[in-house]
Design a binder for these strands. Structure first.
Length: 327
DNA sequence: AACCAAGGCAACCGCTCGCAG
DNA sequence: CCTGCGAGCGGTTGCCTTGGT
């Protein structure tokens, strides 16, 4: 649709290839002074021998003042891998969760580093599923009944989270069809809420609150159960505390500590980015707080990872099932 | 020192989408 | 509803750098 006439064509006078510092200077100065306005007419106004599309790309991916360059942090790695598992190759949506990073940079980083890292660990970079399980007891069965019980519990927890995500994505689509302000970034915006980014979403946030997605019901139930149990004497045998106690005697899972110490809600914990020590180094993906509790209390050595215990496969199976149903 | 292969990254290309007329 | 325009997105290309022989 009206594309070819506006694409960069190899016509005379239009320069291609790497940008020179002088060109960068011209473009930056012009955009910062006048705004970009119409990209197609910008090159002429700015005195550049480039096509508008090239200018736009250069500005977006390189010259914009709010761009962060340099190495990706551990947390950024985690976020990219998590979101790629959820969103696939939707780089712009992924970039929406990484402030100051461009979609192009993330895409390049994925192809040059993360994809290979996953492959080296034995994971399919497309499906994020382990190609094989180390101990051969996938599907939730383990030789250790206690461990198996714990893992099932964790799997339920993560399954609930994934279910919430899946349902929210569907809800988000409905909102979009009816009156939602999102465009094709709707999923990323939804995920943004889920992951605790973009605290101030304006209208989006209001819609989110007013329309209280059903997917959060399960979390509210968990939260109320947890809050009531938290007010009880320590050592109660309710669902969640027994989870913590069962794992390591007096150990209090970090998710509970978070609620009592800083007032965060379960929802916050559930959807918030995991803390650094919850990072599963072997897989290179973050895990939620309850996972960390298990991680620490089961005495996992640094070499252990989720799929070692058949857990990751369970989670991904459930996740795929949920999204299949949704679509 | 020269050559080559691999990796990283900026830039390009082709397509799609949303919007306005 | 149709068409054209402008912008955005994801895949691909090609240049430059680095490391190995």
């Amino acid at each position: 649709m009206g594309r070819s006439t506006h694409d960069c064509v190899a016509s005379s006078g239009i320069k291609k290839g790497p940008w020179t510092p002088a060109e960068d200077q011209k473009l930056s100065a012009f955009v910062q002074k006048h705004g970009h306005g119409n990209w197609l007419s910008l090159p002429q106004k700015a005195g550049l021998q480039r096509c508008g599309k090239s200018c736009r790309l250069r500005w977006r991916n390189y010259l914009r003042p709010d761009i962060k360059r340099g190495n990706f942090s551990l947390q950024e790695d985690q976020t990219i891998i998590q979101l790629h598992a959820l969103l696939g190759n939707r780089w712009s949506a992924i970039a929406a969760h990484l402030p100051k990073r461009t979609d192009n940079e993330i895409k390049n980083y994925w192809h040059s580093r993360l994809k290979k890292r996953l492959a080296l660990k034995g994971y399919d970079p497309v499906t994020h599923k382990p190609k094989t399980t180390i101990f051969g007891f996938a599907n939730g069965s383990t030789d250790d009944p206690k461990t198996g019980s714990n893992l099932n519990h964790i799997a339920q927890w993560e399954s609930a989270r994934l279910q919430a995500e899946a349902r929210f994505v569907r809800d988000s689509d409905l909102h979009k069809q009816a009156y939602h302000p999102y465009n094709n970034n709707d999923i990323s915006a939804a995920s943004s809420i889920l992951l605790g980014h973009n605290k101030d979403c304006g209208l989006t946030d209001q819609l989110f609150r007013q329309n209280a997605p059903q997917c959060l019901d399960i979390l509210r139930a968990w939260e109320s159960m947890l809050m009531s149990s938290d007010s009880k004497a320590a050592g109660g045998q309710d669902h969640v505390n027994s989870f913590g106690n069962h794992l390591a005697g007096d150990f209090k899972p970090p998710i509970i500590s978070a609620i009592s110490s800083n007032g965060s809600s379960l929802m916050d914990c559930f959807f918030h980015e995991p803390v650094g020590q919850c990072f599963d180094e072997n897989y290179g993906i973050s895990i939620t707080e309850p996972f960390a509790a298990v991680h620490h209390n089961m005495g996992f050595k640094n070499g252990a990872c989720l799929e070692d215990f058949g857990l990751w496969e369970i989670i991904m199976q459930r996740k795929n099932k949920l999204f299949d149903i949704g679509n």
